[in-house]
């Protein structure tokens, strides 16, 4: 093994409003840090190559695939994962819209879809259908044919207003 073996850093960041410190390898994937160190298993691994979007989280306001982020690059960031969408035991309008529209079928792409949709609505509270499709194009779903996901995002945009 190289001289990198055993390299560890104390990684500080804020996830879903909570400051955390994790001792980990700087090259560890953010996805593994979230799932294994912080037990935030809502974020899923579908491909490990940034293709399916199941691991998408919002980092400093931007959508990223957590499987492609080395831990060191999450130092000091603000992260939001699917666990951080609902507040005070209440689902966010976006989550409610997914329930209402059957936007989640098997549910494995859902956390990533929600984060992409959440991030979109933060940037563009009233997106066109085309804008929704473009924003979600990096999130693959094999169950729905996307129609009900797109409909759910449109519904959330309509109902949620700024209080996503």
């Amino acid at each position: 093994m190289s001289d990198g073996s055993g390299q560890q850093i104390d990684l500080h960041f804020v996830v879903n409003g909570q400051a955390v410190t994790v001792r980990c390898h700087p090259m560890a994937r953010l996805l593994d840090v979230l799932r294994e160190e912080l037990h935030l298993t809502g974020t899923k691994e579908g491909c490990g190559e940034g293709e399916c979007g199941a691991c998408a989280v919002v980092m400093d306001g931007e959508l990223v695939n957590s499987c492609l982020v080395p831990a060191a690059q999450a130092a000091g960031v603000q992260l939001r994962t699917v666990e951080g969408l609902a507040a005070g035991g209440r689902l966010a309008p976006l989550q409610e819209a997914f329930l209402h529209c059957n936007g989640a079928q098997c549910g494995i792409c859902t956390p990533g879809m929600l984060m992409a949709a959440f991030c979109l609505l933060q940037h563009n509270p009233h997106p066109s259908e085309e804008a929704v499709r473009v924003a979600l194009a990096g999130n693959l779903c094999r169950c729905t044919g996307y129609a009900k996901i797109v409909a759910a995002v449109a519904r959330a945009a309509q109902e949620g207003g700024d209080a996503l």
């Binding site: 190289s2 390898h25 080395p70």
Partner: peptide, 11 residues
């Protein structure tokens, strides 16, 4: 993969 095979230095 084995992360121990890598070293990542932040300048």
């Amino acid at each position: 993969f084995d992360v121990a095979a890598y070293k990542l230095r932040t300048p």
